[in-house]
Design a protein around this nucleic acid. Structure first.
Length: 577
DNA sequence: GCCGTTTTCGGCCCGACTGTTTTCAGTCG
């Protein structure tokens, strides 16, 4: 069993604390303090277990009281006040908050009045008509709750790749509506989070009603959750909630800013506005009734004294403070990418030939491109030294006729003990080597760390592929000492990959950020197994942006001369690419 | 409970939609 990072476990405890407080009807600002702390802890790349009280309070949103609770949990394995709260509120009641439409007030009410503490009990009570008499409830509310209990299956989030496809289709469909002016998807999709809870679509129009009608009447809609004049929510056949907001064209910028989020980013902007004697909403930045800025995001940020902040950075992880100080990182852009250092052909498990992959890479306008088919220990691939040498000859011949510089490489498997597959003397014949974990995902942290360190320290390994080995929704990240791995990678000149495959996005954003803080170089690669996968590069770039990664941190944004130096690593001089 | 470029006390984002309400509370994002 893979244990979640300590930070995530602490964040979960703080979320639970906030939920229990809300069920008790506690002061809402106190609740928010715990939520803010949970977000801050989850987003921090520092290892909380090693921090003392003073260091803990240096995290934003963490003060003395919460720092003590965190320390208590690390020291004793429990938080006394949390246990007390659990006992007071009652077991299971928190699970009711997962039911859409049932917030803390109503959840507490059904528990108080009917002794309900599970979603199943809630459904049964709704079916028997036992909720409608409660104060503030009614037949309509009961009906909604009943319906909601049928759909609740925990939080379901979809991968970024799937979400982008759905959103694009929906936007195209709405564009046919003549009343639609500007249209864009916003929310966590625009911020390019690795998973997406629901889709947010924003439309500028002077005539919202027909747009709303077209939206809720669309044939992909299976359920209308809300249908107002400027805001509607629907459920699609895929089980994805989509929210549509329609705003006046002159409010486009303020609305796009607002609906892109994140919530924490917005709250901070609004607090800044208040301090300046202004008010910020989705309709604009106001001085009393006078509009100060609203038409573009740029204008709104500028009026608050900030430069425009890329959506991928809007997570309240210091970007606002950085913008204020004029120190926003100049994050990597897709156009900075000069080549792709991880890709497969039909020699192993790819579906396109070497020639096809190279032609597609040429069409991308790259300066260089690496072929890195699997090595033999991934037994399903049936690779042999003869085959890979034959491929090398083909690559060299192809390069003669290509304007691309072609690198012949391989993706090695990092065995349980950290050893690699090809015979040792064979390895320095490759131009580039990616080494990845493909098995034994559940080793204890120390063993996993030693395994990765051994691969990193190998003189021929240039890139650690998909370092956490996570598969979105399928397999959690492997557990290793981030600091030790990053320090070794930085010291040896080994890049860590930001794998752009939408089911991986690995390194994840926060770890990418930690890595560059340790001075590690990154390789943003598609791991393409077909021609279309080469198009995923933008997802890797977006993930890197979310990790505050600059062009200078990325080896495949380097000109060939510099990349060549990087790839030489510890290879004998005569065998360097 | 946290926080500080007017603050160590007194603030803490803002608005839409729904259902049960004759003016608003709860929920959501």
């Amino acid at each position: 069993m893979v244990v979640p990072r300590d930070n995530d476990r602490v964040a979960e405890l703080l979320w639970e604390y906030a939920d229990l407080l809300s069920l008790q009807g506690a002061d809402r600002f106190r609740i928010r303090a715990y939520e803010n702390a949970a977000r801050s802890v989850a987003g921090s790349s520092r290892d909380l277990s090693s921090l003392d009280l003073k260091a803990l309070t240096s995290l934003s949103g963490v003060g003395k009281a919460i720092a003590e609770k965190i320390r208590e949990w690390f020291d004793t394995g429990a938080i006394a006040e949390l246990d007390a709260l659990r006992a007071e509120v009652g077991a299971g009641v928190r699970s009711l908050l997962a039911v859409p439409g049932l917030g803390p007030k109503r959840a507490a009410a059904v528990h108080e009045a009917r002794g309900i503490s599970t979603v199943e009990e809630l459904r049964a009570a709704a079916q028997k008509g036992q909720l409608r008499d409660l104060p503030g409830f009614g037949a309509g509310t009961e009906e909604k709750i009943l319906k909601a209990t049928e759909t609740v299956v925990g939080e379901r989030r979809i991968g970024l790749g799937v979400a982008l496809g759905l959103a694009e289709a929906l936007v195209e469909r709405l564009r046919d509506c003549p009343q639609v002016g500007e249209i864009a998807s916003a929310g966590s999709l625009r911020r390019r989070r690795d998973t997406i809870g629901d889709l947010d679509v924003l439309v500028a129009s002077t005539d919202p009603a027909p747009v709303m009608e077209a939206f809720v009447g669309s044939d992909v809609v299976t359920d209308v959750l809300a249908h107002g004049q400027t805001k509607s929510s629907v459920m699609t056949a895929e089980g994805i909630q989509v929210d549509l907001r329609v705003v006046a064209p002159e409010a486009w910028g303020a609305a796009l800013l607002y609906f892109t989020g994140s919530k924490a980013h917005n709250v901070k902007l609004r607090e800044m506005a208040i301090r300046a004697g202004l008010k910020l909403s989705e309709y604009g930045l106001f001085d009393g009734d006078r509009v100060v800025a609203s038409r573009t995001e740029d204008e709104v940020y500028a009026a608050l004294g900030l430069s425009w902040i890329p959506p991928t950075l809007r997570e309240d992880r210091g970007e606002i403070e950085a913008a204020l100080a004029g120190e926003l990182p100049d994050v990597i852009e897709l156009s900075d990418i000069r080549g792709d250092l991880h890709g497969h052909t039909d020699l192993t498990d790819g579906v396109a030939s070497l020639q096809e992959m190279v032609r597609a890479a040429e069409a991308k306008g790259y300066a260089y491109y690496a072929i890195t088919d699997h090595a033999p220990l991934l037994t399903m691939q049936r690779m042999t030294p003869e085959k890979v040498l034959e491929q090398r000859v083909a690559v060299r011949a192809l390069e003669q006729r290509s304007r691309l510089r072609l690198l012949h490489g391989s993706e090695l498997n990092i065995a349980r003990d950290g050893s690699l597959d090809w015979p040792e003397e064979f390895l320095d014949g490759f131009d580039v080597l990616v080494a990845s974990v493909h098995s034994h995902f559940d080793l204890p942290r120390d063993e996993m760390t030693r395994r990765l360190l051994r691969a990193i320290e190998h003189p021929c390994v240039n890139v650690i592929g998909h370092p956490t080995a996570r598969r979105m929704g399928k397999r959690p990240a492997i557990d290793f000492d981030v600091e030790a791995v990053c320090k070794a990678a930085a010291a040896t000149g080994t890049a860590l990959e930001v794998n752009a495959s939408p089911e991986r996005l690995d390194l994840p954003d926060e770890l990418a950020r930690a890595a560059v803080e340790y001075g590690v170089k990154l390789a943003v690669s598609t791991d393409a197994h077909s021609i279309v996968h080469l198009d995923n590069m933008h997802l890797g770039v977006a993930t890197a942006q979310r990790g505050w990664v600059r062009k200078a941190d990325v080896v495949n944004a380097m000109p060939w001369r510099d990349l060549k130096r990087f790839l030489a690593k510890g290879r004998p001089a005569s065998r360097r690419p």
